[in-house]
């Protein structure tokens, strides 16, 4: 059964004084199955971020519906959306979004504290995650004392410590150098192999080549999608790149 079902989502923004309408998303539908690692690719302005914000319940679609485990997002009340987010979804952002005033440990524990979990239980959960992500030594450091890659791994730890149904990542490698990117993506692959469902929005074909499926969107709609066959990352990467070139030329009616 599909874990996440996105059906026919449209998002319209009213921009400017003349209330000109801008369609950021136009009838997007797709499913994500449990244990999948899906990458969403598209050029700037294609609606990627809008889509992710809707999946994150940070924004509401103008029409259409998102179902998680068969439950509609529309039924989540505004006052409960923060809690819903905390308990069911995990986020990784391009700019980390760590709080400067907390050390890494407290940043990671933040969602658990908000859920009023017992301290001992929190620490029990933290140690295997920190170990897997290789940040045990850094837990008492503050965000400004560690590198970008380390910050992003801490952000991943924060996202998965609540054991969310799905991990949403918005350009997670966007601010990282290639070495840190690779390390982060290896961590994603490992999480995925342990059964975690991941949905990642990215610009980078290299990042997308870690996924099991890549959705290409353009101008607010799904343009195409490709599945990973029994092939290496490198081979999948080549297919993604050729699809991207089609995507960028697509406007000329080549598809």
């Amino acid at each position: 059964m599909e874990l996440l079902k996105v059906s026919n989502i449209t998002k319209v923004y009213n921009t400017g004084k003349g209330m000109r309408q801008f369609k950021a998303l136009n009838g997007v539908s797709f499913d994500v199955h449990e244990g999948e690692f899906v990458a969403i690719m598209g050029p700037s302005g294609s609606g990627k971020t809008t889509l992710l914000n809707i999946l994150a319940t940070l924004d509401k679609p103008t029409c259409g519906e998102v179902l998680l485990d068969g439950h509609s997002f529309n039924r989540v009340k505004d006052s409960e959306s923060a809690r819903f987010r905390r308990e069911h979804l995990g986020f990784v952002f391009q700019d980390f979004n760590l709080l400067d005033s907390f050390n890494l440990k407290d940043n990671i524990l933040l969602p658990l504290v908000l859920s009023r979990m017992d301290v001992n239980e929190m620490e029990r959960r933290l140690s295997p995650i920190a170990k897997m992500l290789g940040i045990e030594e850094l837990l008492t450091k503050f965000p400004y004392e560690v590198s970008g890659g380390e910050k992003q791994r801490a952000a991943v730890a924060r996202a998965i410590i609540t054991d969310p149904r799905i991990l949403l990542a918005d350009e997670p490698t966007g601010a990282l150098d290639s070495k840190s990117s690779k390390r982060l993506l290896d961590n994603f692959a490992r999480l995925n192999s342990q059964g975690k469902t991941i949905l990642m929005v990215t610009h980078s074909a290299f990042a997308a080549s870690y996924a099991s499926r890549v959705l290409f969107i353009r101008d607010g709609g799904i343009f195409s999608q490709i599945y990973r066959a029994e092939e290496s990352n490198a081979a999948f990467f080549d297919r993604i790149v050729s699809n991207l070139s089609v995507l960028s030329e697509g406007g000329n009616g080549l598809v």
């Binding site: 994150a56 940070l58 006052s79 923060a82 905390r86 952002f93 709080l99 908000l114 924060r158």
Partner: peptide, 15 residues
């Protein structure tokens, strides 16, 4: 900035 982050991480805006 802090407000934005806290909201994204799952604190409701009233809190």
């Amino acid at each position: 900035a802090q407000f934005d982050i806290l909201q994204k991480v799952g604190m409701d805006d009233r809190q």
